[in-house]
């Protein structure tokens, strides 16, 4: 439960945000910054409500979120599966894991041109881009989590005569969970970024194409409307994963602060 004093701070903080919005409106109204660049919040919200009532907003948000989620799910499956396999095997850790360390520093968007050459400006190319980019944090955190299981837990597993599968499922997976969840969250952030990048490059619909086309047509209110929606998606996914993290890690003692 939140203490009343904290609630008061939160309310005050909300007021500050509202005041900043009002300031933005005031600047836009008085034309201190050209309207071409900076439409007031009223015009941005007007663009939002217009697209909401025409259903366009829903379609575009849906496309972006679907791409993000699909690419992220593929990446999670590969990242956790492969990461677990590599993490529990010392052989794979010495021979295979370093290769990933070589590929990881490559900015994910840099493979977009390569993906385009192979798949064209298609939906699949965006999915490949998202999956490739968001797999790294999950893969590496999972490897890290599985290879750093406390030796004492390993001893427990041996004493209990767990077989290999049980040892992975009952001991290693829960122990690696905090690392994996951290990777999942980072991966989702990257997935959203790459969904936008992919849509900007390919112009295959979605919020990314929409805001880029709006920029080419000098329709600033549409850009701001799109950016607001992207911010909301980012906020929502972050809140959802934080809640999931808290739920799955309930059994852990709270970290000392």
């Amino acid at each position: 439960m939140m203490r009343p004093i904290n609630l008061l701070w939160l309310a005050a903080s909300f007021l500050v945000t509202l005041a900043l919005l009002a300031l933005w409106q005031w600047i836009a109204n008085h034309g201190y910054v050209s309207k071409v660049f900076l439409p007031g919040p009223d015009r941005a919200f007007a663009a939002l409500t217009r697209d909401y009532s025409s259903g366009k907003l829903f379609t575009e948000v849906g496309q972006t979120v679907l791409r993000m989620a699909l690419g992220w799910l593929v990446a999670s499956a590969i990242g956790i599966g492969l990461g677990a396999a590599i993490g529990i095997s010392p052989f794979a850790r010495t021979w295979i894991a370093p290769t990933f360390e070589f590929i990881r520093p490559l900015p994910a968007s840099a493979i977009a041109p390569v993906a385009i050459v192979f798949l064209g400006m298609t939906d699949n190319m965006i999915l490949l881009l998202i999956a490739f980019g968001s797999v790294w944090p999950m893969l590496l955190t999972t490897i890290h989590g599985f290879s750093n299981v406390h030796p004492r837990l390993d001893e427990v597993a041996r004493v209990l005569r767990l077989n290999r599968f049980e040892r992975v499922y009952k001991i290693a997976l829960p122990a690696a969970m905090p690392d994996i969840l951290g990777g999942l969250r980072l991966g989702l952030t990257i997935a959203l970024i790459l969904a936008v990048v992919g849509e900007m490059i390919t112009v295959q619909g979605g919020l990314g194409s929409r805001i880029l086309l709006a920029a080419r047509g000098f329709r600033a209110p549409d850009i701001f409307a799109g950016v607001i929606m992207l911010g909301l998606i980012g906020l929502a996914t972050n809140v959802a994963l934080t809640a999931l993290e808290r739920r799955l890690l309930r059994w852990q003692p709270a970290p000392a602060t």
């Binding site: 660049f37 952030t189 959203l192 970024i193 936008v196 990048v197 900007m200 919020l207 990314g208 805001i211 880029l212 709006a214 920029a215 600033a220 850009i223 701001f224 799109g226 950016v227 992207l230 911010g231 980012g234």
Partner: peptide, 8 residues
């Protein structure tokens, strides 16, 4: 996302 402010 930082790239979202690209059009702006």
């Amino acid at each position: 996302p930082a790239v979202a402010i690209l059009p702006i």
